[in-house]
Design a protein around this nucleic acid. Structure first.
Lengths: 207, 207
DNA sequence: CACTATTATGAGCTTTTGCTCAGGTCCTGG
DNA sequence: CCAGGACCTGAGCAAAAGCTCATAATAGTG
């Protein structure tokens, strides 16, 4: 693997519309290719081919392969998936409605290809800065959920931290799965069952 | 990527003990390397180096890189993780004990490196045959769990199929996660919470 | 010990892949 | 309409990775 990340890319910046267009096509193609083949096997030539652009053009906008993934990441974050974890403060509602909001939020955040998401997180050599940002958002989200649960009168669990951890991850992972391969079970059913499971758990033992 | 899968490998078959030993060392090294670097970046040279064996020796036993992963897969299956889903027929017990058995079984099955497992499933270009076997085992497992739940008097859910699907996957994925990166939350706590969540879910709405 | 079959070695061939660069085409301002 | 910048092209270079093969070392057998 040749060289690595040159600080930040001092590459040509688009000044004409067609350039912007080319850049977008490259990124779109990259998203598909990475998602389909993984990072290592998603070659720059394949990306260029899929974008119907010459390999030279790709390197006009990105200093190297890593930068392409990084840009994809940035766009994903900028799009607001992840960023705004401020939609679920429905503390006034019933416990079930709170949980449902949590699940819906997770589903929304995974409209984009989750395979790509995984690759971005696990395979990308992200800058420490970016990785930091993501981690912080995750922790913030957990903290927020913890807060909501802590306040809610219907929540009754032995270990709140463990419970939040379990719930957040369960919701997250099940959503991932569903987005990845659309299940025989319909979306709506899935949502209902997941909500039920989490709600009943949080309500505590027989009452 | 040079050539692909030559039907089945007409490679040298070990006749002496040291050969068997070499083969094992290669596979062990491969497991580590794949787990650490992923499939694409887990080069055959790296594997050979880690096994302290020449690259030539590796290709004496495996026709190509894919075959190494495939063999790892076969071993995993043969070892019985997955295969014997016949330990959890504790129908006589309480619902909680049944669920706990299910969770424990999942944990047992992931004693091996779960990263490797993920790589084997997602990145390996497995033969259709192998993929078939795995899928079948999975379905069989789901069917069995469904059976147990169907019989148990305490189970009360709207849609049994959806419930089983949700439960099996939730248990599976949470176990994966815990094995992958040991959580701040202790193993025991995790197991208890997971069991509680699933059990309360299956017991149905307020009663 | 001699002789063969088996196993091990590693330099290096071949293919793949990240990436460059010399030269072309297109767009825009004057 | 034309000059010069912006944009695009793709042959091909260097490095890396998959893999081969001639040769050496070792084990088993009489």
């Amino acid at each position: 693997m040749p060289s690595a990340n040159r600080d930040i890319d001092p590459r040509r910046k688009p000044r004409q519309v067609r350039a912007e267009l080319t850049r977008d096509r490259i990124l779109t193609a990259a998203a598909h290719v990475f998602s389909e083949h993984g990072y290592a096997a998603g070659t720059t030539n394949r990306i260029a081919a899929r974008a119907r652009v010459s390999i030279g053009s790709l390197y006009q906008y990105f200093p190297n392969k890593d930068a392409v993934l990084a840009e994809l990441m940035v766009r994903h974050i900028d799009r607001g998936s992840w960023t705004d974890a401020d939609r679920l403060d429905l503390s006034p509602g019933t416990l079930e409605s709170v949980v449902r909001a949590l699940v819906r939020d997770a589903i929304d955040n995974h409209r984009d290809d989750p395979r790509l998401l995984r690759i971005m997180i696990e395979e990308g050599q992200l800058s420490a800065e970016l990785r930091e940002t993501i981690t912080r958002h995750g922790e913030q989200r957990v903290a927020q959920v913890r807060d909501v649960f802590a306040r809610h009168p219907d929540v009754d669990v032995r270990d709140l931290d463990a419970a939040v951890d379990l719930v957040v991850f369960t919701v997250e992972l099940n959503t991932h799965r569903l987005a990845a391969f659309p299940q025989p079970v319909a979306m709506e059913t899935f949502e209902n069952e997941l909500v039920d499971m989490v709600t009943r758990y949080l309500r505590g033992p027989v009452h």
